[in-house]
Design a protein around this nucleic acid. Structure first.
Lengths: 237, 237
DNA sequence: CTCGCTAACTTGTCTATACAAGTATCACTT
DNA sequence: AAGTGATACTTGTATAGACAAGTTAGCGAG
């Protein structure tokens, strides 16, 4: 059962597609809310909901009395918005993900970096160990932990396109609703240095994340090590 | 001329005040949107606008069919939302800001970390050099650059309460509309190590920020060095 | 007692409209 | 030429409803 797309979602996706395709030059104005509400056969409030989302993701900027201005700079890697790697980065950089270990089903680590809920503790844990590249440079080492709610065919069907969250949403109706994260700077271990092609003790950006889903007490957890010497990590809002 | 507060702003501030005062226990539910619209003599849509802002700042979380759930964990220092230090951190931690140098008016550094607009290049630059503490531990070294639009009495009147942005908004009608940032991990210099009480080459979280304001081509810039060994930096959404 | 359905809540989405307020343009006045 | 003001745009805020859809508690049938 695929969830029926909402109207504002359709508008959002339509505009976003045009934005990433570069239909609108940077700095130009989108059609006004009134024009959009006519072309999409809906009301201004619904259009505004779509535009608000585009603002939140940094695609456009709005000025009272002026209009919606196309930003689309995205000079660095964006991952502070919660889409995930392939969603946000894809526009300006060639992205690739490498599995450092096969997908494994295991029990939760004893000293986990977040407090698990009871629901999660009673489940097994699916572990993904991935190294992510931008423009063929290793950038991000990611440990992802997903509570096992019968995700049997996860690797087979959907993960090949690189988007874990889209797969979870489409195949298992597990939607990410929210994200929270803690940031630190740490020293690279010798193993990490090897992966990134840097020296031991090089500073890495370390991020612990909890993705809240539509199922109560079910979260997806991630631990990221980012090598930022050549690429900064960008965020916004 | 003080801008007249909007209705949803009043609702937002009222709820936020109650939240930081701890009226609602963590995990409990706020009054429903219908109840709130009655007590505030307005409509659901207006209440929703206030609630949406509280969600964006991480105070509450909303569940379809359930209600608005009070989060207010804020276990770490939050600075990825764009309010600024004193706004976000204040609840759980005792915050203090120390000026490492007097407020100085100067021209822009030649190798600035963002590309300046022409408008900005033609102005002088106000420089703030501050060290910020949480619970009496030095946490964040901040270099802030504000284009000088006649901010003569900045230090005298408003900065004593520690909130630069509130001062800029109240006294000079310069409102922050948006923020974008780039994150890196870097090594502490010997001077920084001295300030934070750590050793040279300790990894620091380095953040470059541009705050977009309501005046076109006028931004506020900040460079942050965060010592994250004892306090993580938290963000969300 | 347990299961399943219903009823009464909740938030999510959407319509249709109105006025406030910021922006840009252009004709007109000085 | 420079400034003024009207005007026609834009987005921001707000009203007053409607139905969809998720959640929960309780009632009744088994």
């Amino acid at each position: 059962m695929v969830t029926k797309p909402r109207q504002y979602q359709l508008i959002y996706e339509s505009l976003k597609r045009q934005l990433v395709e570069g239909i609108y030059p940077k700095g130009s104005l989108l059609p006004s809310e009134n024009e959009l509400s006519v072309t999409f056969q809906t009301t201004r409030m619904t259009v505004r909901q779509a535009l608000t989302e585009l603002v939140r993701e940094g695609f456009i900027e709005r000025r009272h009395g002026k209009g919606s201005i196309v930003r689309s700079e995205r000079q660095a890697l964006g991952l502070l918005s919660f889409q995930g790697f392939s969603e946000v980065v894809g526009n300006n950089h060639v992205v690739r993900t490498e599995f450092l270990a096969p997908l494994t089903l295991m029990s939760w680590p004893t000293d986990f970096f977040y407090n698990l809920t009871d629901t999660e503790r009673n489940l097994d844990c699916l572990f993904l160990h991935r190294l992510r590249y931008a423009d063929n440079n290793p950038i991000m080492l990611e440990h992802t932990f997903v509570p096992d709610i019968g995700l049997d065919s996860l690797q087979a069907d959907g993960l090949l396109d690189g988007s874990l969250f889209r797969t979870l949403s489409n195949r298992y109706q597990l939607d990410i609703r929210n994200m929270e994260q803690r940031l630190r700077a740490v020293k690279a271990t010798i193993e990490q240095a090897h992966l990134f092609g840097c020296t031991k003790n090089t500073p890495l950006l370390y991020i612990e994340r909890r993705y809240l889903t539509n199922r109560p007490n079910l979260n997806v957890y991630s631990r990221l090590f980012c090598f930022t010497d050549h690429y900064a990590i960008s965020g916004g809002l």
